[in-house]
Design a protein around this nucleic acid. Structure first.
Lengths: 155, 155
DNA sequence: GGATAACCGACTAATCGAGTAGGATTTAGG
DNA sequence: CCTAAATCCTACTCGATTAGTCGGTTATCC
């Protein structure tokens, strides 16, 4: 598996927030029930999303969570990275702030790391998929609440 | 991390086999030494590659391993899948023999799984990167033995 | 003040990754 | 035939991570 249920649950949580029409916060317990996910586990995940600045919270009665930004300004690479940590195909892969890629094997001496080409391509593919998909895309795909719409194979 | 060191080590092992010029088998201990990897761990990995029909072995003294096919006929999706198992972004993702994708949440009743769109795109990106890269590409990228050639940033 | 809900940290069970260890089997060469 | 070199195979360990649970604290609305 490329990703764990943290990404899965967390994305579903975000979609659930994104499909809420109003501007009132929605309680985590409501999300947990709607998605049939354990509330106490969601608490951990939503904390990560909050620390990443993707959701805001209001405490106390009638409190809950909201998206920090409109859904079409949230890309899924932010979401998945907040939940799973740095997205790199391999342990030795350290993207620098300037966008370059360092491979810790590079200092091996006699040659460039043979696998670098492959992992670079894989990371490119994943990154493109994640950053090219917004939360709004998923909300639209999921359709309005309670109405199961037929979903074509166009992806 | 998307992949573990199983993929990393296994790919490096394959590259090492691919850069051997002759048709004689190379001993795993030679690969282990060249790549500075633990021999006993490589044994596990090469077993997976053998079961997948990617390498052949000859036992006994002067035995070792060889590629089962020319390097340009081996694509990296085969290699990585042999080492890591089915490449799916998420637990719930089950590709059918016909190439379609099933999501176990699909039976949730009230709607299609909201995350399906995202994981489908991610899988597409990874698959394209892996199946679009052959072992020969990596062998060429790594360059000939013992001569570190300058590697451009073109990827 | 009580109910509601976010927040926080500690704990747990199961699984997986990354090896190690030890042996059994096969084969080339002397 | 004997031995060294190799593949092959099973079992084991140790640590990290996943997927949670649990109990308690704080903040807020009514």
């Amino acid at each position: 598996m490329l990703f764990s249920t943290k990404a899965e649950y967390g994305v579903r949580l975000m979609v659930e927030l994104g499909r809420q029409p109003g501007s009132e916060p929605v309680a985590l317990s409501a999300v947990a029930e709607a998605e049939r996910l354990p509330l106490s586990y969601l608490e951990h995940l939503v904390a990560k999303l909050r620390h990443a600045g993707l959701v805001t919270s209001t405490r106390g009665a009638h409190g809950g969570y909201q998206l920090a930004r409109p859904a079409d300004e949230i890309t899924m690479d932010e979401v998945v990275e907040a939940l799973e940590g740095q997205i790199a195909p391999m342990e030795c892969f350290h993207p620098t702030p300037e966008g370059k890629v360092l491979c810790s094997h590079e200092s091996d001496g006699d040659r460039a790391c043979a696998t670098k080409l492959l992992w670079t391509r894989v990371q490119g593919g994943v990154n493109k998929a994640l950053s090219g998909t917004s939360l709004a895309d998923l909300v639209e795909f999921a359709g309005p609440r309670e109405s199961k719409q037929s979903v074509g194979s166009a992806v």
